[in-house]
Amino acid sequence: MSVKQRIRQRWQRWLDRRIPPASQVTLSHRSIFILPTATGALYLLMLVVMLITAINYQNSLIYGLTFWLFSVGLVAMMFTFRNLSGLTLGAGHVNPVFQGDSVGLPLRLEASRRWHESLAIGFPGYPLSQADAIPDKPATLILSYEALQRGHLRTGRLRLESRYPLGLFRTWTWVALDFKGLVYPHPEYVPFQFVAGESGEQLAGAPSLESGQQDFQGLRQYQPGDSLKHIAWKQLARGQGLVSKDFDHDEGALCWLDWEALAPAPLEVRLSRLTGWVLQAQQRNWRYGLRLPGRVIEPGNSEIHRDECLALLALYGLEEGNERG
């Protein structure tokens, strides 16, 4: 087992040297591997039978056909290699995602001069996607990937393979692409717990803990930033335009989401619960601040504010040096 691991490690190190991670990779002889397939072996068997026929019947045309097809087999190697060589892969922009969720990684395929056809692309353990790269028509392929670790998104190497055009050879590469993206901690929804603020009050404006199921007050004009949940869809369907349902919410309620309130739970659990609170507080339109050891985010309420809090939670405790960026 340990030998296996060591071999795998060496292989990874060798790959890292040979095909270093980048946000954009153009495939060349340095990064392309090629080997014959089982079909290639079958093809060779057919040629051997043909050659024996040619020898036993002393038939010049069968000799010719056999030699031609043999040459085709060798030339196919060049053409299979060519199908990957010169192809440029680029990592696109990735939206933040919660840990454990599936994320679509946009992969750009750019062909500069010729078609690169019938490419199978995917991460190990995931189904391969089929794609073609067409010259001067960059295409983006969405690869699904499960974000298992919070922090900066780190995908393993992705595999790209092709047997085009004749299936006698399989050519493949392991590309390390830098998909820049954040993975927020997995949100865990638990009731709010507050610690006493500096001035001793629990929560200014004192939102009720049951808040969120507030009373319906009426309809008002939609404003950018209104939650989708509050849009009055019935009215929209009747053609009355975009209107939001207005609730008697705890507008202006202020709270601190505090690391210490969750003691003595372990780090990841605390981060998960804090994430859940951030999402709930944002949904209820509270003004909320975040207190982590060594980092404080002043209260606020906006999408940007929420993302800032989530990013802080995502990266908390991960050493700067470990992160790629």
């Binding site: 020898i55 010719g64 030699f67 043999f70 040459s71 085709v72 060798l74 030339v75 053409f79």
Partner: peptide
Amino acid sequence: ILLASIPMMLVLYLLFPRLAPL
């Protein structure tokens, strides 16, 4: 692919040992 294979085919046709029937 067929055209690119022609030179190698010609070399094989001319040089591959022509054996007596096996």
